[in-house]
Amino acid sequence: MGLAKRIIPCLDCDKGRVVKGVKFLEIRDAGDPVEVSKRYCDEGADEITFLDITASHEDRRTTVETVSAIAGEVFIPLTVGGGIRNLDDIREMLNAGADKVAINTAAVLNPELVKQAAERFGSQCIVVAVDAKQVNRKHEEKKWEIFTHGGRKATGKDAIDWVKKMVESGAGEILLTSMDRDGTKNGFDLELKRQVSRAVTVPIIASGGVGNLEHLAEGILKGEADAVLAASIFHFGEFTIGQAKTYMAGQGIEVRL
């Protein structure tokens, strides 16, 4: 017995509401973030990830207030991402009660940001979020490219190289989303997860594509991830966190029950 693999429900939030899209589009409402967080925490979630998907400047206040409200009620680690552009944004979220911040687009635009943030706040609270999409042609060796701006902009950067670079800069954890799978319920891109997990020594959170409990277990057993993140299977009542953990324990995965 030792360290448990983590199950992390993800709250994609827009203007103070939990929503969920398919392949970054088609948005559905899934409730109040504080209530949803409390429910997940009671069900045994190991952490909560809160992603502000619009992250427009006007809605910034709403996000800070929501984060603060969640942090006052839920006593498990809370990661906040979406629209984190600079050190001030990071400080604001940490002061609001986030334990970690996830940086995505800003890390690509300003590669020094992750280094500065890790030096200032510690690697333990700097998560680099990576949206990766498979770009090789058929019969070619598998290859993934990272995208920014919520998956809208290609960068030309290779996902594996990028993750290594971010860990060298001080990222304490990688939140790895397969864009091809996000919202599809077809399961994780296991090859991507495994390659990234083997490329670096920091923990990897697998994200994008979970449609059933078997997918969660695969992320750990075949994708070699340290944590698995899912949204829709929990939001719409298909499964509880408890059911997910019981299933994973049955597959021989160490979980916190």
């Binding site: 360290l3 190991d46 333990q124 920091v202 923990p203």
Partner: peptide
């Protein structure tokens, strides 16, 4: 993995 991160 280092850091040792999670529930132990």
């Amino acid at each position: 993995k280092v850091p040792h991160m999670g529930w132990n």
